[in-house]
């Protein structure tokens, strides 16, 4: 038993999706995390709750709303059509956007916690040493919050690899476009190809275990820093 070309396509697509989503999320989540860590605004609580929503919401609910919004009659759909981009559901781009929303809390929260645990003092010290805001971020915040960023990267990537419901709702099962590993396993099972399903499922199991092993090992080494998921 070995991987079929379809299986390999699914694995490749999954890796491409997870990498794209993680990179985009790090760029998007950092300012959100910064704002949540620093603000005194009353908006902090509602925005924080909004960011955390995907933690508790069934992926199908999120996927359903996105499907409606991004569909030809939804507001986002109208907008993307007006831009000449067509509609997003059942495309790789649509999947990237949905995955970003779904994995957002897993990236925002570790970064937010890391920034909070640094406190204001090192940033003030840097300012008194002549460092401007951008300089302060790269010379002080980033190195001190590194454990948070590493945790965020690992969790964002792993969580995107592991999603299913939202892909099913918004992506369907289009080879090389939206058929990721979890969908491929589902398709194998539906077709009663248990052998193929076993093989892919075992790979996912091994991957997930190794990722968490690496993450916990990293957190243990840096105990007291970043965030401790699952403990």
């Amino acid at each position: 038993m070995s991987l079929s070309p379809d299986d390999l396509d699914a694995i490749w697509l999954t890796l491409r999706l997870a990498t794209t989503v993680t990179l985009l999320l790090l760029i998007l989540a950092t300012p959100i995390a910064w704002w949540l860590a620093k603000t005194d605004s009353w908006l902090k609580v509602p925005i924080g709750a909004l960011v955390a929503l995907p933690l508790v919401l069934p992926p199908t609910v999120l996927g359903f709303y996105l499907l409606v919004l991004m569909g030809p009659n939804g507001s986002i759909g109208e907008f993307t059509k007006a831009l000449g981009l067509g509609t997003l559901p059942f495309t790789f781009s649509g999947l990237v956007i949905a995955s970003m929303i779904y994995s957002l809390p897993f990236v925002v929260q570790p970064i937010q916690n890391a920034i909070q645990s640094i406190g204001d003092r090192p940033i003030e010290v840097a300012a008194t040493l002549g460092a401007g805001p951008v300089d302060r971020f790269f010379s002080v915040v980033l190195p001190l919050a590194k454990p948070g960023f590493v945790t965020a990267t690992i969790l964002g990537f792993a969580h995107t690899v592991g999603e299913f419901g939202i892909v099913l709702m918004i992506g369907g099962s289009i080879p090389k476009e939206t058929r990721v590993v979890s969908i491929q396993i589902y398709d194998h099972v539906e077709a009663l190809q248990y052998g193929n399903a076993h093989f892919l499922a075992a790979i996912m199991l091994g991957f997930s275990f190794i990722v968490l092993l690496g993450l916990y090992g990293f957190q243990r080494k840096r105990s007291g820093e970043g965030l401790h998921y699952g403990r």
């Binding site: 003030e124 010290v125 840097a126 300012a127 008194t128 040493l129 002549g130 401007g132």
Partner: peptide, 9 residues
């Protein structure tokens, strides 16, 4: 701004 003042703290 602080980083533009010629101070040591």
């Amino acid at each position: 701004a602080t980083h533009r003042r010629s101070i040591g703290y």
